[in-house]
Design a protein around this nucleic acid. Structure first.
Lengths: 153, 153
DNA sequence: CGACAACCTCGACTATGGTCGAGGTCAAGG
DNA sequence: CCTTGACCTCGACCATAGTCGAGGTTGTCG
C-alpha cells in the first residue's frame, strides 16, 4: 500500500477530470487552479483540484467565462480546503445566473413567436431588434445573454 | 435628381442597422451579405440587406454562430427577394434552437438544485458533470457515468 | 475646382479558450 | 544504467468575431 494517491500527477488529473493536460496548465496560468511541484519541477495536484475543475467546467456549461469563474473561486477560503457549504454557496450563485439566462431566452422565444406571426422581421418595427439595450456591447456569440429584452412589447 | 434610396451606402446601412461598417465588411467577407459596387468600387446595398442583418443579429442573440447563420441564409432563394414566409421559415427554425437551449439550461438548473442539496459537486458522481454531451474525451479508466449524486456521498 | 467626408484594401491586433510542437528533463521498470 | 513515457517551458498557432490604422480613392457640396 505504498503510496496513497495523496497528490495527483497532471496526467492523472487529466484522466480523472476529462480536462486535457494542456487546459490544466492553461487554467493554472490563469490562476484558476494551483499545484505544488516536486523537486523535479513536476506538478502535483491535491485531490481537491478535481472539485475545482468540476466547478470550472460546469460553470462554463452555464455560460460563464473563465474570468467569471476566477472571480467566483477567489471567494473561496485560501486557508482551508473548501467545504461542501463553500461549494454550495458558489453553486447557488449559478442558480441566479441560470434563472436569468433561462428567463432571457424564454422572453426571446416568446417575442420570436409573435414576430413570426407577423413576419415583421424588420430592424425598425420588430421588438426583437429594438431592445434598446447595448447593441454594441453584446459580444460575440452567446456568452453573455444580457438581461436582454426587458423592454416590454 | 432625387435619387431614390434604392441602394444604400455602407454608412447608411451601418446607421440604420446599428451594425458597424467594419462588421458589414466582415459579414460580406464571410458571405453573409452581398453588395454591388459603384464604378468607383464603393459598396452599394439593396434595402433587403437590412432584413438580412436583422436576421443575422437576432440569430446571434439566439446563440447561433455566423457559420450557422450562413448555412441558414444559404437556404434562401437566390433568384428572388426573400418573402415574409421565407424569413418566417428561417425564424421558426430558431424556435427549435431556442427550445433546445432553454431545455438544456433548465435541466442543468434542476440538476444543480439537487446537487446543491448534497454538496456533491464531484467529477465522478455528480450528474452535472456527466451531462450527456461533450465527453468524447471519456477516459477508459474512470467510469464517469454514475447514477446521480442523490445516492452517493 | 477644391475641400473634405466617406469610402476602399490589407494587414495587424484584440479577446477568449484553448491546442500543438520543439527541445529538454524526470522518474520508474528491466 | 538505460530506455521510455510522462512531464517541463515557451512560443506559435487555431477558431470566432470582430476592430483599428495606414495609405490611397471616391463622391458630393459649396
Amino acid at each position: 500500500m505504498s503510496k496513497l494517491p495523496d497528490m495527483l500527477t497532471i496526467g492523472q488529473v487529466a484522466e480523472r477530470s476529462g480536462v486535457p493536460h494542456t487546459a490544466l496548465r492553461f487554467y493554472e496560468e490563469r490562476g484558476l487552479i494551483g499545484s505544488e511541484r516536486t523537486t523535479g519541477n513536476q506538478r502535483r495536484y491535491a485531490r481537491s483540484v478535481l472539485r475545482r475543475l468540476a466547478f470550472i467546467r460546469t460553470a462554463q456549461r452555464v455560460g460563464l467565462s473563465l474570468e467569471d469563474v476566477h472571480a467566483a473561486l477567489a471567494t473561496l477560503p485560501d486557508n482551508r480546503t473548501p467545504t461542501k457549504s463553500d461549494w454550495s454557496r458558489l453553486s447557488a450563485s449559478w442558480q441566479t445566473e441560470l434563472d436569468a439566462r433561462i428567463d432571457a431566452l424564454v422572453r426571446l422565444r416568446d417575442r420570436l413567436t409573435s414576430c413570426i406571426g407577423c413576419g415583421c422581421l424588420s430592424l425598425r418595427s420588430c421588438t426583437l431588434h429594438n431592445f434598446e439595450d447595448e447593441q454594441a456591447a453584446d459580444g460575440p456569440g452567446a456568452p453573455k445573454l444580457k438581461p436582454a429584452c426587458e423592454g416590454g412589447t
